[in-house]
């Protein structure tokens, strides 16, 4: 197979629909008959990224590219950008509001979780411009 790509837009503060993109991504991978462990890693990574877009960004997209060797999830937003990426990557650090915490998020585990799910994790951000996160998961024989 060649490369299969899908892109989903994610709205700021749309908690009603938050998780829909990741749910669709999970279903696509299930339909492709991929191994359940890799599906779980991709789904968790995509979902954390999607929640981050809803909670912290001004809106953005989640994209998945599937080729025979790997799955790549790219989350890109239009701002506001992260000032200190190193600090944002620290477990337990969060700028989420009390309201978000009451919903069960904002524990400061999102970015570390995404990294944990990925074989390659890249994050770049510019204040006033936006943030781009790339998570790459390699496929083994049998996935």
């Amino acid at each position: 197979m060649g490369t299969l790509s899908y892109e989903f837009s994610v709205e700021k503060d749309d908690f009603e629909r938050a998780g829909e993109a990741s749910s669709k991504i999970k279903k696509i991978l299930m339909q492709l008959g991929m191994d359940s462990s890799i599906i779980r890693r991709v789904a968790i990574g995509a979902y954390e990224a999607e929640m981050n877009l809803v909670i912290h960004s001004l809106g953005g997209t989640i994209r998945i590219d599937i080729d025979p060797k790997s799955i790549v999830i790219t989350a890109e937003d239009i701002g506001p950008g992260i000032e200190d990426i190193e600090l944002a990557m620290k477990e337990g650090y969060s700028t989420a509001t009390e309201k978000i915490r009451e919903m069960g998020f904002g524990a400061g585990m999102g970015l570390p979780n995404m990294k944990k799910c990925s074989d390659v994790f890249e994050i770049e951000s510019e204040v006033g411009k936006g943030t781009k996160i790339v998570m790459k998961m390699y496929l083994k024989d049998g996935d």
Binding site: F15, G19, S22, K26, M103, F105, A107, M109, G110
Partner: peptide, 30 residues
Amino acid sequence: LMSDVLAFAKRGTILLTGLINSQVIRTAEM
């Protein structure tokens, strides 16, 4: 804390929680 669930829960887990919003279901799904 749903992020902790995503980080630590394994397959074959029952989640016990006092939260009842849709994100709990999404978290379980993922």
